Amino acid sequence: MEPVVNDDCWFKHLVFDTTTVLECEYSSKNFILFLTGGSVLLNTDSYCGEFVEGNILLLPQSSFIRLEARAQTHLVSLSFDYLTNLCNSALLQLLHEHACSVSDEVCPLKMQPSLALFTETLAYCLRRKAMCPHWHKVMSQEFILLLKEFYPRKDMVGFFRPLLGEEPEFKSFVLQNYPKVDNIAGLIELSQFSRSVFFTKFKSAFGITAKQWLLRQRANRLLGKACRPGISVKELLEVCDFDSQSQLNRYVRKTFNCTPKELIEQAQKRYWVE
Results as ranks from 00 to 15, higher is better:
A219T: 13
K234N: 15
S232R: 01
L222I: 12
L215A: 10
E235H: 05
G230W: 12
G224P: 05
S232G: 08
W213E: 00
Q247G: 07
Q245I: 09
L223Q: 06
L222E: 05
L215F: 11
R216M: 12
K225H: 12
L237H: 12
R221F: 00
S232V: 02
L248C: 03
L223Y: 10
G224Y: 03
L248I: 10
V233L: 06
V233E: 08
V239F: 02
A226Y: 05
Q212L: 14
S246M: 14
E235R: 13
L222N: 09
L215G: 08
R218I: 02
I231T: 05
E238L: 13
K234E: 13
Q217Y: 02
Q247K: 10
N220L: 10
D241K: 15
C240G: 01
I231E: 09
R216S: 04
I231M: 07
R221T: 03
W213G: 02
L248H: 09
L248F: 12
L236G: 01
W213N: 02
I231W: 06
R221M: 00
N220V: 00
P229N: 06
L237M: 10
I231H: 04
Q247A: 04
K234G: 15
Q217L: 00
E235Q: 07
L223H: 02
L237S: 03
Q245H: 14
L248P: 09
A210L: 09
R228D: 12
R228E: 13
K211D: 15
D241E: 13
S244Q: 05
K211L: 13
A219P: 07
V239T: 08
S246L: 11
K211N: 14
D243M: 13
F242Q: 12
V233N: 05
L223C: 07
R228C: 12
Q217K: 04
V233M: 05
R216A: 09
E238Q: 13
R216K: 11
S232T: 14
L214S: 04
K234P: 03
K234M: 11
A219K: 14
Q212G: 07
G224C: 07
Q217D: 05
Q247L: 06
V239L: 01
Q217W: 04
Q217T: 01
S246I: 10
